[in-house]
Amino acid sequence: AGSTTLRAVGKLQVRLATKTEPKKLEKYLQKLSALPMTADILAETGIRKTVKRLRKHQHVGDFARDLAARWKKLVLVD
């Protein structure tokens, strides 16, 4: 499952970095939220930084902030 999640995170990371349409960004964040994330995947992909960049986004900022905070707890636990 780890390598599958890693690939999925990579694809979503590229999309988050290149797309600007709020509905698409929200969809990608929801998909990321549903993935079985680990501290290793967060470290290897840097996805948390990508998501943190969206914290001030008018439409998806709250979602991005919550997701980044949830992942921060995951990193602190591991």
Rank of each mutant, 00 (worst) to 15 (best):
Arg65Leu: 04
Ser33Trp: 04
Ala39Leu: 10
Val51Leu: 08
Glu44Ser: 06
Gly46Gln: 06
Glu21Lys: 06
Ala8Ser: 07
Tyr28Met: 09
Val9Thr: 03
Lys72Ala: 07
Leu67Lys: 02
Leu67Ala: 04
Phe63Trp: 07
Lys23Gln: 12
Lys24Tyr: 10
Lys27Arg: 09
Ala39Cys: 09
Gln13Ala: 10
Arg48Glu: 15
Asp40Thr: 11
Gln58Glu: 12
Lys72Met: 06
Arg48Val: 14
Leu32Glu: 00
Lys73Thr: 09
Ala43Asp: 09
Lys24Pro: 01
Val60Ile: 07
Ala17Ile: 10
Lys73Cys: 09
Val51Arg: 00
His57Cys: 09
Ala8Gln: 11
Leu54Met: 04
Pro22Asn: 07
Thr45His: 01
Ser33Ile: 01
Pro22Ala: 09
Leu35Cys: 03
Ala64Lys: 00
Glu21Val: 04
Ser33Leu: 03
Arg48Asp: 15
Lys11Thr: 12
Thr50Lys: 00
Asp62Pro: 04
Lys73Glu: 14
Tyr28Thr: 13
Ala34Gln: 12
Leu32Ser: 01
Leu29Phe: 03
Asp66Cys: 08
Arg48Lys: 04
Leu54Cys: 07
Ala39Thr: 07
Phe63Tyr: 06
Val77Phe: 07
Leu12Ile: 12
Lys24Ala: 12
Lys31Gly: 06
Pro22Gly: 08
Lys24Cys: 14
Glu44Cys: 05
Arg55Ser: 15
Arg48Cys: 14
Ile47Lys: 03
Ile47Ser: 02
Gly46Cys: 04
Ala64Ile: 02
Lys27Ala: 13
Gln13Pro: 02
His57Pro: 02
Lys31Pro: 03
Asp40Val: 15
Lys31Leu: 13
Leu12Ala: 04
Val51Trp: 03
Thr5Ala: 03
Glu21Leu: 05
Leu67Asp: 00
Ile41Ala: 05
Thr50Gly: 03
Ala69Gln: 10
Leu32Phe: 09
Leu16Arg: 00
Leu16Trp: 03
Leu16Val: 04
Ala17Asp: 15
Gly46Lys: 05
Val9Gly: 01
Lys52Leu: 14
Arg70Cys: 07
Arg7Met: 14
Ala17Trp: 08
Lys72Val: 01
Ala34Cys: 12
Ala68Trp: 11
Arg55Met: 15
Arg48Tyr: 14
Ala64Cys: 10
Arg15Lys: 15
Leu32Gln: 02
Lys23Asn: 13
Ala34Phe: 06
Thr5His: 04
Gly10Ser: 13
His57Arg: 04
Val75Asp: 09
Arg7Cys: 08
Arg15Tyr: 15
Leu42Trp: 03
Thr5Leu: 12
Val60His: 03
Leu29Cys: 05
Thr20Met: 12
Lys49His: 14
Arg55Gln: 14
Arg70Gly: 04
Ala43Phe: 07
Thr20Arg: 06
Lys19Val: 15
Lys56His: 14
Glu21Cys: 13
Leu16Ile: 12
Lys49Gly: 14
Arg70Thr: 07
Ala68Glu: 06
Leu25Arg: 00
Leu6Tyr: 05
Thr45Trp: 04
Val14Tyr: 08
Arg7Pro: 01
Lys72Phe: 00
Glu21Met: 04
Leu6Gly: 06
Leu25Lys: 00
His57Lys: 04
Gly61Asn: 00
Val9Cys: 05
Thr38Phe: 02
Leu6Val: 09
Val77Gly: 14
Val77Thr: 12
Thr20Cys: 13
Thr4Ala: 10
Lys23Asp: 15
Lys49Ala: 15
Pro36Leu: 06
Gln58Met: 14
Gln13Phe: 03
Ala43Ile: 14
Arg7Ser: 13
Thr4Cys: 10
Thr38Ala: 02
Leu35Glu: 02
Val51Tyr: 00
Ile41Leu: 06
Lys11His: 13
Leu25Thr: 01
Lys27Gln: 14
Arg15Ser: 14
Ala17Phe: 04
Ala39Glu: 06
Pro22Gln: 01
Leu16Tyr: 00
Tyr28Ala: 11
Asp78Gly: 09
Lys27Val: 11
Gln30Tyr: 07
Tyr28Ile: 13
Arg53Trp: 12
Ala1Asn: 08
Gln58Trp: 14
Leu54Asn: 05
Thr45Asp: 01
Lys72Cys: 07
Arg53Asn: 14
Arg53Thr: 12
Ala8Met: 11
Tyr28Phe: 06
Val14Phe: 03
Ala17Gln: 12
Gly2Glu: 15
Lys49Gln: 14
Tyr28Cys: 08
Gly2Trp: 08
Lys23Phe: 10
Asp78Val: 04
Ala34His: 07
Arg7Lys: 12
Leu25Val: 03
Lys49Trp: 10
Arg65Pro: 03
Val75Gln: 10
Arg15Met: 15
Gln13Cys: 05
Glu26Lys: 07
Lys24Gly: 04
Glu21Ala: 09
Pro22Asp: 08
Lys49Ser: 14
Arg48Thr: 12
Gly10Tyr: 15
Met37Gly: 02
Ala39Ser: 08
Val51Pro: 02
Leu35Asn: 05
Tyr28Asn: 08
Arg15Asn: 14
Lys31Thr: 11
Glu44Val: 07
Lys11Asp: 15
Ala39Val: 11
Val77Pro: 13
Trp71Val: 03
Pro22Arg: 03
Lys11Gly: 07
Phe63Asp: 05
Leu32Asn: 00
His57Ser: 08
Leu16Gly: 01
Lys23Leu: 11
Leu42Tyr: 08
Arg7Asn: 12
Arg15Trp: 14
Glu26Cys: 04
Glu26Val: 04
Val77Ile: 06
Arg55Val: 15
Ser3Pro: 15
Asp66Arg: 06
Lys24Ser: 12
Val14Cys: 06
Val9Asp: 03
Glu21Gln: 11
Ile41Asp: 04
Thr45Ser: 06
Lys27Thr: 10
Leu54Ala: 00
Tyr28Gln: 03
Thr45Lys: 04
Ala8Leu: 14
Glu21Phe: 06
Ala68Asp: 10
Leu25Ser: 02
Lys11Ser: 14
Ala69Arg: 06
Met37Trp: 01
Thr4Arg: 05
Pro36Glu: 10
Val75Gly: 09
Val9Phe: 00
Phe63Arg: 05
Ile47Thr: 01
Glu44Ile: 08
Leu67Ile: 06
Lys56Phe: 12
Thr4Met: 09
Asp66Gly: 07
Val75Trp: 11
Pro36Gln: 07
Leu42Val: 03
Ala43Thr: 08
Asp62Ile: 00
Leu76Pro: 13
Leu16His: 03
Asp78Lys: 10
Lys24Met: 14
Trp71Thr: 01
Val51Lys: 06
Leu42Ala: 01
Val14Pro: 09
Asp78Met: 05
Pro22Tyr: 10
Arg55Phe: 15
Ile41Lys: 04
Lys27His: 12
Lys11Gln: 15
Leu54Trp: 03
Lys56Arg: 11
Leu76His: 11
Gln13Lys: 09
Leu25Gly: 02
Lys52Ile: 14
Lys31Ile: 14
Lys31Met: 13
His57Glu: 05
Leu67Trp: 00
Asp78Trp: 07
Val9Lys: 00
